[in-house]
């Protein structure tokens, strides 16, 4: 009993709060920026993978297979390996390979192929009959994507986004270890290297809360778009 209360009284809440606050901001910065850019890149890529696939309305078998192979290759790399492997590209784009902004590049490269495949799968659930109906009304390919595929798959697409954000939170913790900052970095520096169990636990709690909030928001939005 006394051991626990001693330990509790030794906790410096002000310090932890300070550290958590700045680390959380860094994590949020990485996750939010990476999420937005990932969605913007993955959606066209997912649409492309779908509509150019065999039997679909914009079939381009050869190019589809090539892009598909690249996407699969990127997906098969573990994030840590990818992070290190693309450092030259990171340096080229951001100018440095260390720091929160630099961590965003591998985060995006790591999740875009994954999310594009999720989007592709979700868009594929839209019945071909709907596409056909739109074609019979004289819709162009772009209009079919924009007004049929995406709205019809919206609940699933939002769920895909939820998964993506959660993966980004997890990857951002890893990115922290190569100087990206954020909660992962905090846990590593204090929890692992300085044996600060209190900070370790606090980090874990914050991460759990973040993931829960993202999931709840995703579920809410997804159900709002679902009229089936």
């Amino acid at each position: 009993m006394t051991a626990v209360s001693n330990w509790l009284s030794s906790i410096n809440f002000a310090q932890i709060g300070q550290l958590l606050y700045s680390s959380s901001l860094q994590t949020l910065y990485m996750v939010i920026v990476a999420s937005i850019i990932t969605f913007m890149l993955a959606l066209p890529l997912g649409v492309f993978l779908l509509v150019t696939s065999k039997g679909n309305f914009y079939e381009m078998g050869f190019i589809n297979r090539i892009i598909g192979a690249v996407v699969n290759a990127l997906r098969s790399l573990p994030f840590v390996v990818l992070m290190v492997a693309i450092m030259p590209i990171t340096v080229f784009i951001v100018g440095t390979r260390i720091g929160t902004t630099a961590a965003i590049i591998p985060l995006i490269v790591g999740t875009v192929p994954f999310t594009a495949r999720l989007f592709e799968t979700s868009l594929r659930t839209v019945s071909s009959g709907l596409v056909e109906a739109a074609q019979s009304m004289g819709a162009s390919s772009y209009q079919i994507v924009r007004r049929v595929l995406i709205p019809e798959a919206m609940p699933e697409l939002i769920q895909n986004c939820t998964i993506t954000v959660i993966v980004l939170i997890s990857n951002s913790a890893m990115a922290g270890m190569i100087g990206g900052g954020g909660l992962g970095d905090l846990a590593l520096r204090y929890g692992y290297m300085r044996f600060r169990l209190d900070i370790m636990i606090a980090t874990v709690i914050v991460l759990i809360i973040m993931v829960q909030l993202v999931q709840m928001l995703g579920d809410y939005l997804s159900s709002k778009f679902d009229h089936r």
């Binding site: 009959g129 056909e132 739109a134 009304m137 007004r147 709205p151």
Partner: peptide, 29 residues
Amino acid sequence: RKSIGMIFQSFNLLSSANVYDNIAFPLRL
């Protein structure tokens, strides 16, 4: 194709749009 309407066995209505928006769909193209 706009002067050739088509209806289907499985109706093929947009589940994400209400009746109004479904009917307005071809007009908005």
